[in-house]
Design a protein around this nucleic acid. Structure first.
Length: 422
RNA sequence: GGGGGAAUGUCCCGAGCGGCAAAGGGGGCGGACUGUAAAUCCGCUGGCUAAGCCUUCGUAGGUUCGAGUCCUACUUCCCCCA
């Protein structure tokens, strides 16, 4: 009832694609779900928290699954956790998470919707995506009614046997009541979505398995049709790091929070061992093409990385932005020329006239956090102005340093910013 | 309700006789080597108008020339007994 049986051959485009590309970790009923998908009436959802102001790469896997669902004739339902976010998922355990103001949650929702719109077609058609918010029903729940109508269907015995719960108890770790309830709310979402949209499957990361199955169980007891669970593997890079975390923070999917150029760079810098996997998971390229690319060895794999970066960036920021990012990268890394499309920071002309200290300049460019850090980077030989290393921290930038109206500041080999006078 | 612990550099873990900008990791950043990769080695990892000054060890007071370290109260978390 979890991993795919040996002799299982998916008949539906949906499952076949997902399995071939490595999106599938567990499923409650491969045959059953396959049949639904083949019949063309698969409506499935994935829940998203509204805690962050936008979506980041960590969400991408789920988004891609929804996109494939739509492309193979199903109806995707991204569920906003506007209600559950108000409770706060306690899994982190150390601190009770700050409650977000309702306006913030709404703003987050709006921003997230914009990102979804790039991957999914929304509307009223059969396979058009819809984006409900569980605040619509959760916030109206009355505790007593909920206990009578829904709560009585939860088997505590059963919940106790779930991995997430069992592990905590065995290790003598605290499991709060709210956490126990979080599971119930999520289960209830599933049933509610079935009633409202005829949703029959819930997908999510492998850590969601228990919660999803609890929903299926609740559905059976409350008389829904058979529901299904489908989970995807937890993503890490080959070296074990969590996907999508960089020094600068999360890898956001919105241009205002992370420039398309930096987004392109994120993919370009993928580890060799990840390229094939990422191409399967984060692009729509046909499998033949991917197999050809991942077979490249040695330095040739860089070509595959560029294609990965192009495709992944195009999905989020559009072809044009992707092409521009690629061109900027080509000039910067392969020709060593300052492309005028590099990220740019403007400085009032008056400051140039007065003479701008190098350390300050790097801080203003956002390459370092403080002059102290800039000083240290100078000692380590990490800073360059117009491609020549800074060796004197007292140096001053003047008009004469401008090349075509800009000064190129670099931190290390990969981070460059153009400073322009305004 | 009673008793006992714990909170440290705003990324995390974690040492810290009353002289502390505070050991050691992890992570991150930079350098070398490469292919804008990995692995490996080296350096850095409070702020500033920088041989000086300022701000940091849960919060607020106190003792002291001097407090992360001692005292008091408070907050939060954990453990044991009921």
């Amino acid at each position: 009832m979890s991993a795919a049986p040996q002799n299982f051959r998916p008949q539906s485009d949906f499952l076949a694609t997902l399995m071939e590309r490595g999106y599938v970790h567990q499923c409650s009923d491969f045959e059953g779900l396959d049949a639904k998908a083949r019949a063309g009436d698969l409506i499935a959802y994935i829940g998203f928290d509204c805690t962050a102001p936008s979506l980041h790469v960590g969400h991408l896997l789920s988004i891609m699954i929804l996109a494939w669902l739509q492309r193979t004739g199903g109806k995707p339902v991204p569920l906003m956790g506007g209600g559950t976010t108000r409770v706060g998922d306690p899994s982190g355990k150390d601190e009770t998470r700050k409650l977000l103001p309702v306006e913030t949650i709404d703003a987050n929702k709006a921003a997230m919707r914009k990102v979804f719109a790039k991957f999914l077609q929304f509307g009223d058609g059969k396979t058009d995506a819809v984006m409900p918010d569980n605040a619509e029903w959760l916030t109206r729940l009355n505790y007593i009614d909920f206990l009578r109508d829904v709560g009585r269907h939860f088997s505590v015995n059963r919940m106790m046997s779930m991995d997430s719960v069992k592990l905590r108890l065995e290790r003598d770790q605290e499991l709060s009541f709210i956490e126990f309830n979080y599971m119930c709310l999520q289960a209830y979402d599933f049933v509610e979505l079935n009633k409202r949209y005829g949703c029959i499957a819930q997908m999510g990361g492998s850590d969601q398995w228990g919660n999803i199955v609890t929903g299926i169980d609740l559905g059976r007891r409350m008389g829904t049709p058979q529901l299904f669970a489908l989970t995807s593997p937890l993503l890490t890079t080959s070296s074990g790091a969590k996907m999508g975390k960089t020094a600068a923070g999360a890898v956001w999917l919105e241009a205002g929070m992370l420039s398309p150029y930096d987004y392109w760079q994120f993919w370009r810098n993928a580890e060799d061992a990840d390229v094939g996997r990422f191409l399967r998971l984060f692009t729509f390229l046909p499998m033949d093409e991917i197999r050809r690319l991942e077979a490249l060895g040695g330095a040739e794999i860089n070509d595959a990385k560029k294609i990965l970066a192009n495709e992944a960036t195009a999905l989020v920021h559009g072809r044009e932005a992707a092409g521009q990012a690629a061109e900027t990268a080509r000039k910067t890394f392969e020709e060593g020329v300052a492309a005028d499309t590099l990220p740019t920071v403007e400085i009032p002309a008056a400051e140039f006239d007065a003479g701008l200290g190098v350390l300050t300049a790097f801080v203003r460019a956002g390459l370092v956090a403080s002059t102290g850090e800039a000083r240290r980077q100078v000692k380590g030989g990490g800073l360059r102005v117009n491609d020549s290393a800074v060796d004197d921290e007292r140096a001053v930038l003047r008009d004469g340093d401008l090349r075509d109206g800009a000064i190129k500041l670099s931190l290390g080999k990969k981070k460059h910013v153009l400073l322009k006078a305004k």
